[in-house]
């Protein structure tokens, strides 16, 4: 089972290493890890896709919570949320170029580079959508593919900052 955890951390040097090394040290499996700044330069946000049963994910959350720089943790899989990843896919496309472009259109992928024998698509979406496009492009010759880790936010007014306030009052 995969669950998406969103982690608000203080923007300190080494915080990503601290989080990543905790995962590896304790033998937790992660599918992806994405990190980036927030609207407040003092904080960064890490999104981790964790595989494991509920007990494992619960333990991951508790261990994350022990890291001094971790401010708040939200389990996006437990609430209504949007998650997105970005992928770049370089496809062989000479005589079957039109077919590739048609597929791209269906997936609302953008063409970001086009050459005589290949083209590169940019697609965003959840894991399933990107996987589906990659699979469909395989027969054409998928030359290379790269993707970012998943990022996500809850739907509605709820934010990770509110989640932090609740934590403190508990």
């Amino acid at each position: 089972m995969k669950q998406v955890l969103s982690v608000l951390v203080q923007n300190q040097p080494g915080v990503l290493v601290r989080v990543a090394s905790m995962f590896s040290r304790r033998g937790f499996n992660i599918d992806s890890l994405a990190v980036g700044v927030t609207q407040d330069p003092d904080y960064s946000r890490i999104t981790a896709v964790v595989c494991g049963d509920q007990a494992t994910v619960d333990q991951v959350i508790k261990q994350l919570d022990k890291i001094v720089e971790v401010v708040a943790i939200q389990n996006l899989s437990h609430t209504s949320s949007v998650t997105r990843g970005l992928a770049l896919l370089k496809v062989r496309a000479n005589e079957r170029r039109t077919e590739v472009l048609k597929l791209a259109e269906v997936f609302r992928a953008n063409v970001v580079d086009i050459q005589e024998n290949s083209l590169t698509l940019e697609v965003n979406g959840d894991d399933e959508k990107i996987n589906a496009l990659a699979e469909l492009l395989m027969p054409f010759g998928l030359l290379e593919m790269i993707r970012t880790g998943l990022i996500g936010l809850t739907r509605g007014d709820n934010t990770i900052y509110k989640c932090e306030e609740i934590d403190e009052n508990d």
């Binding site: 007990a55 508790k62 919570d65 022990k66």
Partner: peptide, 11 residues
């Protein structure tokens, strides 16, 4: 005292 110890080794 450490919440992470609950259910870590023995449920």
């Amino acid at each position: 005292v450490d919440p992470a110890e609950i259910d870590k080794n023995v449920m």
